[in-house]
Amino acid sequence: MFTIVKNEMIAEDIYTLSLKNAPAGNAGQFFMLRVPGSADPFLGRPLSIFDYDEDRKIVSFLYQAKGPGTQLLASLMPGQKIELQGPYGNGFPMPDGSVTLIGGGIGIAPLHYLTKQLRRAKPTRHISVYLGFREEGYMVDSFKLYCDELHVDIGGQITANVGFSLGDTYFTCGPEPMMMAAAKAARKHRAKLYVSLESHMACGVGACLGCTCKTTQGANRRVCKDGPVFLAEEVYNV
């Protein structure tokens, strides 16, 4: 069980949640969060690592209150305890060269910690970040610390602004149509793109086979265990 140190609304229906003494994980990995002993909802909810403070062992999440599970999370107060399982999933790879990150809406959550880890792994590389929002932007400033270029778009199509080129590595997380558009553009320019998928999950560890997606070759992959990060060409036929 982990103690909540912060749970605040930062934009409409958007919250940040921090827990202390939490285990570390890699960017793109997620935790299953659950109110202790709850029977309704009784399954955990997967949330990506938004940030991790190594010194104070504090893990932070950025989440949107959508349905019953995330609304219940939003009602919790600092000092209360929560069940945390994980970190689960494969996480993003750490390439060497220049990188571009494309996030849409709440999909910016895993990209934030990714930007930080990419910067740390190689302080001299070029990092471009594109963030798209429907109505209002949030957490934009905290990306500034770790990137060289930051583009923000409200209400438009963020992928249209991105120039894809062979040799760089691209990462995206957000609404499916946005990730598909990025996959299409990346394919055209033969650029390497990693996507972070979402799926409804029960176990989060690869045992229930409830979260599978189909590869372009027709095989099943568990989003929780084999993913959530995949090469775009492995899962999107665009």
Partner: peptide
């Protein structure tokens, strides 16, 4: 078997529906 296609899980009040289809 590859199991069922489409959505496979839905949480319901104090329970869950699954349609894994014996993958």
């Amino acid at each position: 078997s590859l199991g069922n296609s489409g959505r496979r899980l839905l949480e319901t009040p104090a329970g869950m529906l699954n349609s894994i289809g014996l993958e």
